[in-house]
């Protein structure tokens, strides 16, 4: 990776709050930022679990309604 490329990567991580950097002379030191990656992952995981359970339930209802509508359409044609 080029130095310019590396600088871009670090600046994106910095904007996201995942790292903080400090430049002293020619050396820039990076540290893990306040917002930790695990926290971010846990946050998404909690939402994923809630929405998966929710949408699994919706899926069942939708399937049921769809089946009823198809059955009605068939019986009306007879």
């Amino acid at each position: 990776m080029t130095l310019t490329g590396m600088k871009k990567h670090v600046s994106i991580l910095e904007q996201a709050g995942l790292v903080t950097t400090e430049k002293i002379g020619r050396v820039r030191t990076c540290r893990l930022g306040q917002r930790r990656l695990e926290e971010e992952a846990a946050w998404i995981e909690q939402h994923r679990q809630l929405w998966t359970a929710r949408f699994d339930a919706l899926d069942e209802i939708v399937e049921d309604l769809n089946r009823k509508e198809k059955a009605n359409a068939t019986s009306q044609r007879r």
Binding site: W51, F55, L58, D59, I61, V62, E63, L65, N66, E69
Partner: peptide, 13 residues
Amino acid sequence: RTFDAPAHIVFEA
């Protein structure tokens, strides 16, 4: 998420 039914059914639910 994608559901296996037309939009009017999902909207109804």
